[in-house]
Design a protein around this nucleic acid. Sequence first.
DNA 1: GACACCGTATAGAGCGCTCTCCCTCCTCCC
DNA 2: GGGAGGAGGGAGAGCGCTCTATACGGTGTC
Lengths: 346, 346
Amino acid sequence: MSRQAPTLEDVAREAGVSRATVSRVVNGVRNVDPAIQEQVQRAIERTGYAPNRAARSLVTRRAETIALVVSGAGGGPEESQEAFAARVFADPFFGRVVAGVVGFLRPRSMHPVLMFAESPDDRHEVLTYLRQGRADGALVVSTHPDDPLPTLLAAAHLPTVLFARPTPAVPLSYVDLDHRDGGRLAARRLLERGCRRPATVAGPLAVPASQERLAGFRDTMARGGHPYVPVAEGGFTLASGIAAMTRLLAEHPDVDGVFAANDLMAQGVCQLLRERGRRVPDDVAVIGFDDSGIALSCRPPLTTVRQPVEQMAAEMARLLDQHIRGERTEATSVVFDPELVIRETA
Amino acid sequence: MSRQAPTLEDVAREAGVSRATVSRVVNGVRNVDPAIQEQVQRAIERTGYAPNRAARSLVTRRAETIALVVSGAGGGPEESQEAFAARVFADPFFGRVVAGVVGFLRPRSMHPVLMFAESPDDRHEVLTYLRQGRADGALVVSTHPDDPLPTLLAAAHLPTVLFARPTPAVPLSYVDLDHRDGGRLAARRLLERGCRRPATVAGPLAVPASQERLAGFRDTMARGGHPYVPVAEGGFTLASGIAAMTRLLAEHPDVDGVFAANDLMAQGVCQLLRERGRRVPDDVAVIGFDDSGIALSCRPPLTTVRQPVEQMAAEMARLLDQHIRGERTEATSVVFDPELVIRETA
DNA sequence: GACACCGTATAGAGCGCTCTCCCTCCTCCC
DNA sequence: GGGAGGAGGGAGAGCGCTCTATACGGTGTC
């Protein structure tokens, strides 16, 4: 671009009014004569004016930008940020989070800044970014429990909303799912189908959501006459699902119903069962969790417990927006209900 | 945050020097006495100073931010941005792009702003965003040919780097893969395995990359004694891969080797073949394209043509950086070579 | 006819930073 | 000893915007 970008001053001169008046028109403030408004509008078009955001942010103290942080809990740079990012997006879950956040932000002409925080340095980077005023607040999705980032954010009084209740407790708003109820839904379905040998592939037990899903599942199974349910712990990945199911099958070759704590692992469970000659759902019923794209692309399509991730992410953005605008000062929480989606595997 | 954030002025007062000196220290400019430097450094720590980016951007005319735009080619708001975002991330491809970009940006303390441009309004939004100086340039990944965004960006002289050569031609830098050569690699492998009835599931033929992959494949097949190769067009999705293979099988039940234009479709091909009682690779060899996470999680693991997406994305970021800093003024292109990754399906 | 009042536009003071002068002090060399 | 030269630090002018205080005209009221 050879010539300088036009400024308010240029538009004002072109329209024959003062800077302040142009500013009012641009910001849609009332008390402007319609004729002048029109005149200014045309001057803006003629000059091709676009307000300089840095100048505006400098005085309003608002970046009109939020950070979307995917946070691990690494103590050091064990893994490159690139590898972390790749791993994160391997799960369709994050794509859904992005979609939900964008769904809320878009109508407001806002766009998220994507950040990955895996090492202490990364976390410092996030803090600095916000303290510099480059973003007005953060949406944090932690991949691990005991993520130190929320605590840091809270201590710095930076507007933040989390996905999932933080452990340990931190006075920040969050959005969550009733995971326990999700586990119950899965158990009930299996019981209704007449399963007599249920088992479950749990998520990492260090993750509260995994524990809750497991607790809900066990709970309902116990009431249904199955006080003991074999459990194999997985890591929310396809490979870990296969491995967990392998162990389960070795000790309990007669299982006829499996609840996997996410769809990725459920897919692994199905794959292994088929390899071992078990038919799904005829020999073994399988229920996943999340209702991600995988559930549909699986063969056969997965019966699963739906987690409305997009809605939850949009709600996070809404809460953060309120915090930023000062419309909400106290931390709050919004808990969504899971829903059983019946397809073919159970 | 009750009290105002400390400014340069505060730090200067605390350290007993002028604003200019603090600025020099913060920006690592030479000509500062080490003793004073130390003194300022301590004052910064004591006050907890973080430079205000808006103020800095206002004078440097740099946002130190780049936009990562995923662009469709929609003529209207046929699809919500949320749905578009979700669809985009269903393909692991974009996760890899993000990973590559972040890999380059991170060491520079930069973070991408994620934007989706599917409707004309969205495109206008992208233009405005850049013209307002909120980002210094754009990295554009188009999901469709004839995307109007590159043309708009070029006309506005906004620093831009594209993923894949634009059609029609636009004077912008881009990064691409030698797709034709990728098709050749797949054909050669199939020939070497002794395939006698090859077929291919192509990508959308409106996409140049699909055409190139197909052309390369046909080319080598023709030289290998197969002047005619059955083609079924797919849409780069799992479902379309299944559908395409279904058609192929109906007309050519004796195929013994299939090249699918991406891994997602190759996965569909494998699924369908298995359902129809064909063993992979014993009865039919299958080769995918991309080497995305799917290739590994597929059962059996997919032999595929690797596209170094992360490296390509990092290169895009590097080129954009050069354009922004004015170190490169002419549009350029960097073409990467594909590589055959042999696993179990061929 | 004087005054108050409301709606509308302007002037001007910053927001917090960078960066260009310019001043000062010290060293070095003839 | 004097002047050139260089290093280190300060003063101050903006960057482009918002927003408060203020001016100004026109209407309504007594």
